[in-house]
Amino acid sequence: MILKAERLSAGYARIQVLKAIDLEVKKGEIVCLVGANGAGKSTLLKVLSGVIPPTAGAFTFDGRDVTGRKPNQLVRMGLSHVPEGRQIFGSLTVKQNLFLGAYVNPAKKERLDDLLESVFGLFPKLKERLAQKAGTMSGGEQQMLAIGRGLMSQPKLLLLDEPSLGLAPLVVEAILSTIGELRSRGISILLVEQNVNAALHISDRAYVLETGRIVLQGEAKDLLENEEVKRCYLGM
């Protein structure tokens, strides 16, 4: 088990966004979070990466209780969050962005170069753009950079928030197929994706979130056949 959340609750000011979430990600799994806008998916990822402290409940990462840890501690342990909207540093070069991904694990120069090479293995385009300012790249390239940057800390678990948002269909396909590639590199993935059909096809399991509660969970292939999921999220 790489991640296990028990009765996790969180919110902003007096608004409770997450209500007693139980969730697991096993090693090597791709787990998908499905839900409408405002269901609490992004908030859940922010709690798991330490950006927002939970108001109740607990979660373990890699067997250790990490409730209340800060992002810098969690990144160092191997939990990397690729946030919604990419949040790359547009005024910095692609290379500087990637190096910042490895900020908490100051590696030797050769090791950094190895890490860069492994990112280029997934996204060859980034190699051509190394010296370019990140803000001048296309949306798809920026998303590749955001994922690549997230990989530079050598994560065991990657939290991916809406990686295909606002991208052209071909680019979406490319991004989603690399997610499968990441699993084969031994990285577990918790994925939030508005393209539910595609997401369920690459996931092992999924949770359906409605107004801060998990209302349905199971194997991804079973959820693809579930009548309610079909009606609400697959538009069938």
Binding site: V75, P83, L92, L100
Partner: peptide, 23 residues
């Protein structure tokens, strides 16, 4: 330097920087 680049990252996008583990 990593510290200097991290400082620029913080200035541009504090949320993104915190996810990189930058204090």
């Amino acid at each position: 330097t990593p510290a200097g680049i991290a400082m620029r990252a913080c200035a541009e996008n504090p949320y993104g920087a915190s996810l990189m583990g930058i204090n």
